[in-house]
């Protein structure tokens, strides 16, 4: 059923605009002077000098984790590269001499393609790749700059003492 909406006719004071316009001007000029003199209400964060803290679950630039002996945790199983929907991880595998394991000879992530979905992190059985560096890849001028190598990713990496290969061994 149609509902009758009450639409009161505006009186002459309102229709003359003037008082309402003056009220609007009061609001804007108050904001102007307060911010001009004290910057009290300004919410701007002046980015490069001042950064907004990212939330703890922020997915930023990848890092490759290390074992206790400082070697890379990654066993070059290619699960992350397979899981990656953007197809941006390129791994070349090699044999480790000290253990019966593989390791990545090279490990590239192409940040032009990466969508920071975190699938690689979830797929990894070794807690070797994480997106929790809390930082994001800085923009660059060339395409080459946007592809990070194993060394770059390891530089941000930290120690992980999770059991290699998960709980089942």
């Amino acid at each position: 059923m149609a509902k009758l909406v009450d639409r009161p006719k505006a009186d002459l004071v309102i229709r003359s605009y003037i008082p309402e316009v003056l009220r609007g001007l009061r609001v804007t000029s108050r904001h102007f002077w307060v911010n001009f003199l004290t910057r009290k209400n300004v919410v701007t964060i002046e980015y490069p000098e001042e950064k907004y803290p990212y939330p703890p679950r922020f997915r930023g630039q990848h890092r490759l984790m290390k074992r206790e002996d400082d070697s890379v945790r990654c066993v070059a199983c290619f699960l992350c590269a397979t899981a990656c929907p953007a197809d941006c991880i390129t791994i070349k595998a090699g044999e480790r001499s000290d253990k019966n394991e593989k390791y990545p000879v090279s490990f590239e992530i192409d940040y032009i393609r990466c969508i920071f979905c975190g699938m690689c992190e979830e797929a990894c059985p070794c807690d070797a790749i994480r997106l929790d560096s809390g930082d994001h890849k800085l923009p660059g001028y060339t395409r080459e700059e946007e592809v990070l190598q194993k060394e770059d990713l390891l530089a941000k990496g930290g120690l992980s003492i999770a059991k290699q290969g998960g709980i089942l061994q």
Partner: peptide, 10 residues
């Protein structure tokens, strides 16, 4: 600048 200050920006 002025529009920014009015809108609480810089």
């Amino acid at each position: 600048r002025m529009s920014a200050l009015i809108q609480d920006r810089l």
